[in-house]
Design a binder for these strands. Structure first.
Lengths: 259, 259
DNA sequence: CGGCTGGTTGAGGCATCTCAAACGCAGTGG
DNA sequence: CCACTGCGTTTGAGATGCCTCAACCAGCCG
């Protein structure tokens, strides 16, 4: 039909190949996510003026309704975004780790649509949106990186919707743990013993179920040896084998379709 | 803290004010959505070379797994995006009307993550992604418009997640109809009698419930005079008053929280 | 110690799903 | 013209998965 022009040929002047993979992957083969994140942060640091901000557990990076001025890139820590409706319902709609952006949802309306809350102490990089627009004009690689980040978030949201609609409660919890372990693994962190920094109520809210259901699901997963609990409290979960979680999800689905 | 610099001052050279509102609304007060869409399409038409493609009902604009080359802007018709999992589950994750973009989810991975299916005959504008990147570098207004579109889609996904997690089935259907009527109203179309181009099964899939539940919910809404059915088949729904749908949602929530 | 927060587990209830039957409507072919 | 078929819809009755309510337990901290 038409020939595929590599993006790099039109993305403007010379770019360091070492930075290329934090943008859209049309140009290059896949690289480890940890590397991509390091390159993204390096690119931002060189192309933009960022204000580093340290946040403590429970502190809000921004609140729903705040005027949209800045985007934030997670440099350390873990964050939840909480959608708040007019009538007061609260819903955890996203979890964010190092390398993720916070605040994309504010662009369209000019104010943020949800709260972004730190779940432990961490650091975010504030980037003024007007400066980002300017930087994207100057540096196509940066623009591509922003597009990629938004695209990834859209894909994640879709997968969440699918999980909520098609998986029974136990499988949804298993899927949740699998995703969590996956993001840790991508960042080069230990996945065999992870600490959930969320209460059962928060997990349930995120997954669309009640806290008791989460607790029961975790108990069943532990009984089936798909996960384990560390002797130090029930807050830490041992995941000896991520594939076992996937297998559990598949088994749930097979059992369901098999009547 | 710091003064708010209007984006327009850094967005580059002169821009026609008439086109300004299709981008982020920091610069300008809110305008009617229909106007924004017209301006978006005009901007795209002047800044980019588009290939117009007519699609018929049931036809795929793209399929999950297809290589990501192009984005699409809806010029006419109505489309659904369907997420397909490895094990064959299908989930409608989005509905798209005139002025919406299709394919953002392909940017990050280099291939599309879902099917985009036309639900009636319509027309999409194909835009090569490399050309779009170049155009965004050239025209900051275009870049802002793309960001705004992605941001809006993120916000919509989150509202969907919230509706699925917090609303009972009847209210979820009411909310669905309200959103549908809302998008029609934004585009200057009639909202008092809308034709659902989806089967009950599709609606149910989208809302995370079974087709019988959708049917019952619609029957109850009709019994409560919140909606009506046209005499010609049950496929057309009469919505005399959109506010009545919102009121129904609120009533459901009030009844639920009241124990 | 005693209160508090978060977690686990059980019993019963309810919203939704499953299964099933019947209907309307459009298309098709005799 | 009518029978016949297929698909989508409606409605009912029973099953079930998750929620609600409640009791109890385990850490933690003043």
């Amino acid at each position: 039909m038409h020939t595929l022009i590599p993006v790099s040929t039109i993305q403007g002047p010379v770019m360091k190949p070492a930075l290329a993979s934090c943008a859209a992957p049309i140009t290059a083969p896949r690289r480890p996510t940890g590397e991509r994140i390091a390159q993204l942060l390096a690119l931002i640091d060189t192309e933009l003026t960022v204000v580093r901000r340290v946040v403590r557990a429970g502190e809000a990076v921004y609140r729903a309704g705040d005027a949209f001025d800045c985007l934030y890139v997670v440099h350390a820590g873990m964050y939840k975004t909480v959608n708040v409706s007019a009538d007061g319902r609260e819903q955890v709609v996203g979890l964010h780790f190092k390398g993720d952006w916070l605040g994309f949802d504010g662009i369209a309306e000019g104010c943020f649509g949800c709260d972004a809350i730190a779940m432990d102490t961490g650091e975010v990089w504030m980037i003024r949106y007007d400066a980002l627009l300017e930087g994207c004009s100057r540096t196509p690689l940066l623009m591509a990186a922003v597009h990629t980040a938004m695209s990834r978030e859209l894909a994640r949201d879709r997968d969440s919707m699918m999980a909520m609609c098609t998986l029974p409660a136990d499988a949804r919890v298993a899927d949740f743990l699998r995703n969590w372990a996956g993001t840790l693994e991508e960042r080069g962190l230990r996945t065999d013993c992870i600490t959930l920094r969320m209460t059962r109520a928060e997990i349930g809210n995120y997954l669309g179920m009640k806290l008791e259901t989460v607790s029961r699901a975790l108990s069943r997963l532990a009984r089936d040896k798909v996960i384990g609990f560390s002797e130090k409290g029930r807050r830490d979960v041992e995941i000896p084998d991520i594939a076992a979680l996937s297998a559990f999800v598949d088994r749930s689905l097979a059992a369901a379709t098999l009547h």
